[in-house]
Simulated assay, not measured.
Amino acid sequence: MLARGLRILDAFSADHPALTLSELARRAELPLSTVHRLAGELVGWGALERGADGRFRIGLRLWEVGALAPRGSALRERALPFLEDLSQVTRENVQLAVREGVEVVFVERIAGSGAVPVLTRVGGRFALTATGVGLVLLAHAPPELQEEVLTGPVERYTPHTVTDPRALRGMLADVRVSGYAVSDRQVTDDALSVAAPVHDRRGAVVAAVSLVVRHGTATPLALAPLVRTSARAISRALGA
């Protein structure tokens, strides 16, 4: 029963935030009668809400529970002052992310005034191989996970996306040496991302912070000191 309820919740996405009962059943791959019963229970608990249009949406109660996740809430709380400082200084997009399996999960994003549009959102997931934060987190991931990612299919988002495993291994080695990662037009044709690692008190990389600017407006060498300074400040706040 729990697994079926989770399949219903998993049917929602950024592209499909509101679903009819039949759409919900189709996306969850469950019988309509089952979805009707479980959706009613989820609405009663607050995990789902049903609007006047009859469509279901994720409920506020689920957001309340999700906000208790320590890797997201505690990290975000400690990091937010430094992310805001970086945003105010640069007026660019600032992002904070963690690794969940073979994907990046964004726990905070501050959009700069007039900054280049980005595809990421808080709570959204992305490939480790394309974004600046993803490259940082992959560079410091266990070797077996790196191999899993690099030997599997690597998604291409733009003509500039690096998909060759040998080239990616070289990039990850550079990240470990330089202390920052660069994603140049790998996600969109007009964006440059520079990211740096955040460490916990044991020295492990637990997150990554990045600046995303319009391609051609700044160089990675100019952005790296700003990002690394913010990452070190967040690390100190975490007890590193």
Rank of each mutant, 00 (worst) to 15 (best):
T163E: 12
D190V: 07
R7E: 13
W63P: 02
V149T: 14
L168G: 10
R121L: 14
L80V: 01
A231V: 01
A208T: 03
Q186H: 13
E100R: 08
E29G: 05
L145S: 02
M1G: 03
S113I: 07
E108A: 12
V136M: 09
Q88L: 08
D184I: 06
A222N: 09
A52D: 15
R37S: 15
L238C: 02
T34N: 07
V227W: 05
V136P: 11
T229I: 04
R37Y: 14
N93F: 03
V43G: 10
A196Q: 00
A196S: 00
F106R: 11
R99E: 09
L32V: 06
T20M: 01
R236E: 15
R91L: 09
V118L: 11
A3E: 15
A240E: 15
Q186I: 06
H160C: 11
R214V: 00
A28D: 04
L223T: 03
Y157R: 13
A141I: 04
A115H: 05
A79Q: 04
L80M: 11
D53R: 02
V175G: 06
A79L: 02
T219E: 11
S230Y: 02
A69W: 12
S210K: 01
E144T: 12
P142L: 00
V94A: 00
T129Q: 10
A97D: 03
G51H: 13
S87H: 11
R202V: 00
P81E: 10
G40F: 08
G134K: 08
H215W: 02
A25D: 06
V105H: 02
G239E: 08
A127S: 15
V212E: 10
P81Q: 12
L21T: 07
A139V: 06
A224T: 14
F12S: 07
P31R: 08
